[in-house]
């Protein structure tokens, strides 16, 4: 099972590979893009993109020299026609330099790139929101080699999709960067703080109504307010537990470490560490953390042992036990039921 990690500049590549990433992904905003379109984002990230073709060439070559792979993300939800033409040229150059895979989300761009037959792998971004077998089949027929699942799929759902398409690769989120909604159908802009920031973190007050115009009785009103408070608590976990880390520098927040055994058994090829815009130190610690769990799984540890390690490694097991930090909270239920005794045999 491969560890996929982000880089935001060329100098991050070597430390990230040394820490244990098997594949790296990065964004690129070429100068001509900024000149032509007046915006500094190609792939939903304003920051953390490289800008020079020379950097791109160096990343591809250096990754290959280390026996690793590099992937270019062009994964906004949609593009205009002139933007697509610019991106197609970028894709062509990336492929020409020997880049390994393009991460795409917009089916129109995907279709255009596949028609070019660039001899490069296509990974479907989580932004494309592929969450069922029929959808994976659809994208497979369109030319996709790997589906990156969106957040909030259940482990059983992942298993079923992967089982129904044994020739396709699948990648899942494993650490960092929660999203409260669904990235593929969130049509907002992460505004600067003075305008409210991302909508999921903006200061909203909710007032409750019944759709039939009747009054809400007091007990329900109270329950709605409590639900609101619970939701706020959940979002605190999703926003990296107040953007905190453990004493060792390991990240808190969205995490699927204890599910790696299940994911490996169920046909997931790669696990993704999110956070392209994060500082290098955070990326390295995240890779070390994921690797420490992945290696236990690979060496044959039981799912229970993996769970025990993963939930204690940051010395705050109560955060894990809340379930609110989890990408795959059903593992907690299985642990409580004493079920995760399976031993996973994996190729090393």
């Amino acid at each position: 099972m491969k560890i996929v990690a982000p880089i935001s500049k060329a100098e991050e590549l070597e430390p990230v590979l040394e820490a244990g990433a098997d594949e790296v992904f990065f964004g690129m905003v070429p100068q001509e893009w900024t000149r032509q379109f007046g915006i500094s984002t190609v792939s939903r990230r304003l920051f953390g993109n490289i800008r020079e073709y020379a950097e791109m060439q160096w990343i591809i070559a250096t990754a290959h020299a280390a026996g690793k792979q590099s992937m270019l993300t062009l994964n906004a939800q949609h593009y205009t026609e002139p933007q697509m033409q610019c991106l197609i040229e970028l894709a062509r150059r990336f492929a020409g330099e020997g880049g390994d895979a393009l991460i795409l989300a917009d089916p129109a761009l995907l279709m255009a790139v596949v028609e070019l037959d660039l001899g490069i792998r296509i990974h479907l971004s989580s932004i494309a929101a592929c969450r069922n077998s029929e959808s994976a089949r659809f994208f497979g027929e369109l030319g996709v080699d790997r589906v990156i699942f969106p957040r909030y799929l259940k482990l059983d759902e992942i298993r079923d999709v992967a089982a129904s398409l044994p020739d396709m690769e699948f990648e899942t989120f494993i650490l960092n960067d929660g999203c409260i909604y669904e990235e593929g159908v969130c049509h907002t802009i992460h505004l600067p703080q003075q305008y409210g920031g991302p909508i999921c973190m903006d200061a909203y007050q909710y007032s409750f109504y019944r759709a039939d115009g009747q009054r809400i009785d007091k007990a329900i009103q109270q329950a709605l307010l409590q639900n609101e408070a619970d939701y706020k608590e959940w979002t605190w976990y999703k926003f990296s537990c107040g953007f905190s880390t453990s004493e060792q520098g390991y990240t808190f927040g969205p995490c699927g470490l204890c599910a790696i055994s299940r994911l490996a058994r169920d046909g997931v090829t790669a696990i993704k560490i999110a956070g392209r815009e994060a500082p290098l130190e955070r990326k390295l610690k995240s890779i070390q953390l994921v690797r420490s769990v992945r290696d236990r799984v690979t060496s044959g540890a039981t799912a229970q042992a993996v769970y025990d390690y993963a939930s204690n490694v940051r010395a705050r097991p109560e955060l894990c036990h809340s379930g609110y930090m989890c990408y795959y909270p059903e593992v907690l239920e299985e642990v409580e039921c004493g079920q995760p005794g399976l031993r996973v045999a994996l190729p090393k």
Binding site: Y195, G196, D202, A203, Y204, Q205, Y206, I216, L224
Partner: peptide
């Protein structure tokens, strides 16, 4: 049955 109106309290 229910819906919520949303009001921004900051900007």
């Amino acid at each position: 049955v229910y819906f919520s109106r949303m009001q921004r309290t900051g900007c």
